[in-house]
Design a protein around this nucleic acid. Structure first.
Lengths: 110, 110
DNA sequence: TGTCATACTCCAATGGCCGGTATATAACGG
DNA sequence: CCGTTATATACCGGCCATTGGAGTATGACA
């Protein structure tokens, strides 16, 4: 039970999959959207993370398709993966709440 | 302007200093509190991060005291450090909002 | 014809964090 | 009286996720 914090790219990959099964390249573009263009995943980061997350059982292969001779491997979030992401959201909410309060930022509700 | 995401220990160190100047060991215990015991900073992580953050200009030495022959070096957040932390809070809020929505967690307001 | 979009693979280098050791004093418990 | 915990900082090897590329391949667009 590592339970060490997820880094941003990993967090966003899980978030992308929380909307339903997607293939690698789709995740890449979705992450760009989610983060309003702030985060652009490198191919190396993405596919390495996908392998790692699958090894950890947080995601799994949903299906594979061949489109124009090009492989599309779809991944989906597993129940443990969804739990892990939810736990991470909680952790981040707690931390941002403290930080915002200390910085005098009171725009927390809305 | 690197502007790559802060990792959790770094984020919490800045958050600790957002409450006012503190010395290394104080930050360590404060971080344990902030995170409700979930995160315990290693000495290696803490002091290395302090040096790094000072190099980046996000924090600076506030003052030094000698208490019982023991050195206490107090650090404080610089204006750029506060801005950086605020930006990080914004980024995390945006990400957690999307993730929570996709997970069907609606406990965002309160 | 060239470049962008699609789609996955692999690799060297970077750098923050982990885990531990070292140093030193004071206080508390058994 | 001795061991452990608390206070307080410094240093270091190693790990591993991310970075930042290059490589392979096809179709579309200008």
């Amino acid at each position: 039970m590592s339970q060490r914090p997820l880094q941003e790219p990993t967090f966003l990959i899980l978030t992308a999959l929380a909307a339903g099964a997607q293939h690698g390249y789709g995740i890449m573009t979705d992450v760009t959207d989610i983060s309003a263009g702030r985060v652009k995943l490198r191919a190396g980061t993405l596919y390495a993370a996908l392998d790692r997350l699958a090894d950890e059982g947080l995601i799994e292969v949903d299906r594979e398709e061949i489109v124009d001779t090009r492989l599309r491997r779809y991944y989906r979030l597993t129940p443990p993966g969804a739990q892990r992401l939810a736990a991470e959201v909680e952790r981040m909410r707690a931390h941002t709440t403290v930080a915002a309060r200390r910085l005098g930022l009171l725009g927390g509700l809305a």
